Simulated scan of single mutants.
Amino acid sequence: MSRECYWYVTMIRLSEVFDSQLKAYFVQNRKQHTTQKFRTLMKQFAKNLEQSISNRGKYLFELEFLYRKLLNTMATTDASAKIADKKPITDYIYEMYKSSLRSGQICIYLKYASMLVCIHDNDRAVTLLKDIESMITSDMVQISMLPEKKCVKPVIDRAQSLAPHEIAKILAAKIIMNVEFTTLEMNCAPSHLMYEMYKILTEDDDRVRCNKISKEIAVIDAKPFLYYLQYLAHEETEGKYSSKIKLFNYIESLDIRPVGLFDTAYNLKGHIFELENEASKTWQAYVTSATLVPRNNAAYWHMCRLFSQYVADKSPYERTK
């Protein structure tokens, strides 16, 4: 195995460890317990991590990483419950969010920003999203892009000069994790993303799905989600237009190939057209998404939804003829 290939494989494995632990915990435990019990389990998990971190032993960085991500999940889960009950977000939840931001992870910042958008705290959301955008540098790579070796060469080149115990730190700093929402967090995600939780439509889809697709979890690449949140958060036309163009340019930069979570990004494009009442462009966006990624794609739900709305709108007219 060449040295470059070795570092590439190491990067894949470490990033999967960072990205999969909490997802696996949710999948394994969510259906076995009530929502309240699951929250209790997460809090116990957090206490166990705190104890391990306080011992200052091996894998301190990795433990801190998981702890901050868990805090973010707990904050988003609790905030989602508050939104469902039409209650304000408590100071305790805000403190968990702020503590989780110490990880420096783009995906964690974006979940906080998404919650702000969902409670219509748009001024704070716009400011936070601007800060997040400034955190993303040209040498960062989205985790779903790792199979594209040409995208990760700068990260590999830098990692090769580091000691083994520093590798995890550089990978965490340069790999942008996906943004994920479980069903317990769904009220902190734009409602359009709910369909991503149910993109596995048939048993055949389930058999061929890749690891990045999970049941009852909405997963999206960080960059298109950032631009989409900016579009939702901005109230003035100029801000919306700028955000829309950034998302559209991002999609075009993929050379119209299904790289990363391409279908989800294209579905966000469709939703923007939908919000702007561009019916023809909306339909074309969802059709293109389904054409490029024919399996495990929420675009089918959106097309069914649009067709249902069209029939419903036509029915009163037809009855009066």
Rank of each mutant, 00 (worst) to 15 (best):
K174P: 02
L232G: 11
S20T: 07
F26N: 06
G239T: 10
D263M: 02
F273N: 10
K321N: 12
S214W: 04
V219G: 11
L268F: 02
R207D: 13
P316K: 14
E318Q: 14
Y92M: 12
E50W: 07
K43S: 15
L146N: 09
M115L: 02
S253N: 13
F61R: 09
K82S: 08
T77H: 08
I176P: 00
S289H: 10
I251N: 03
K269N: 06
E64Y: 05
H165Y: 08
I167D: 02
I83G: 02
L66R: 10
K246I: 04
F18I: 07
V152R: 05
S54A: 15
L49Y: 05
F262G: 07
S15Y: 03
Y25H: 10
H120M: 03
A84Y: 08
K86Y: 02
K169T: 08
K86I: 05
H165G: 00
D91G: 02
D91C: 03
H271R: 13
N187V: 06
M194Q: 15
S280A: 14
G270N: 14
V311C: 14
V155P: 10
V155M: 11
S54R: 13
K153Y: 03
Y231R: 00
G104N: 04
N267Q: 05
C118P: 03
T137I: 11
P154K: 01
V9T: 04
F18T: 03
A113Y: 01
E166L: 12
M42E: 05
A81N: 07
K86V: 00
I175F: 11
I200W: 00
K244P: 00
L201M: 13
I200E: 01
E95S: 14
C188G: 10
L60M: 00
N72M: 04
D78K: 05
Y59L: 15
T291D: 09
K130P: 11
P316C: 12
Q28S: 14
G104Q: 09
V152Y: 00
S191Q: 01
F61M: 02
M42N: 06
Y97A: 06
E166F: 10
E166D: 11
L116N: 14
C304F: 10
